[in-house]
């Protein structure tokens, strides 16, 4: 990765977080908790993949209709997150792969 890529990446990340900051408070809180969770269990390409910006797009749309965030995604935020990352390889899968388990159901 070149220095240019890193700088570009940071710029994009800052722009992304600025959009998060502009969300209504309930959306912002839920987004941040989701992000923390997804970084722990989510896909490997999370920082530069399409998932997080997609969530912000979706939240902006929901906020624009005047709905509360839990009205939009339901009370079980973890279930929503798990549905989001279904079928994408996660850190845990990568770890299991590396220790030689054959445990990713998608590959069987």
């Amino acid at each position: 990765m070149s220095i240019r890529d890193i700088v570009e990446g940071k710029k994009q990340w800052r722009a992304h977080m600025a959009r998060v900051k502009a969300l209504p408070p309930d959306y912002r809180i839920v987004y941040k908790e989701m992000q923390t969770y997804l970084f722990k269990v989510g896909p490997l390409d999370l920082p530069d993949g399409p998932l997080l910006p997609g969530i912000v797009d979706f939240f902006e749309g929901g906020a624009a209709t005047g709905k509360g965030v839990l009205e939009l995604i339901g009370n079980d935020v973890a279930a929503f997150c798990d549905d989001l990352i279904k079928e994408s390889p996660t850190r845990a899968d990568a770890l299991r792969e590396s220790i030689g388990g054959r445990s990713n159901p998608a590959e069987q």
Binding site: E71, I73, G74, L84
Partner: peptide
């Protein structure tokens, strides 16, 4: 809810 549909569309 919309979130469920969003995950399916994704």
């Amino acid at each position: 809810v919309e979130g469920t549909v969003y995950t399916i569309l994704l």
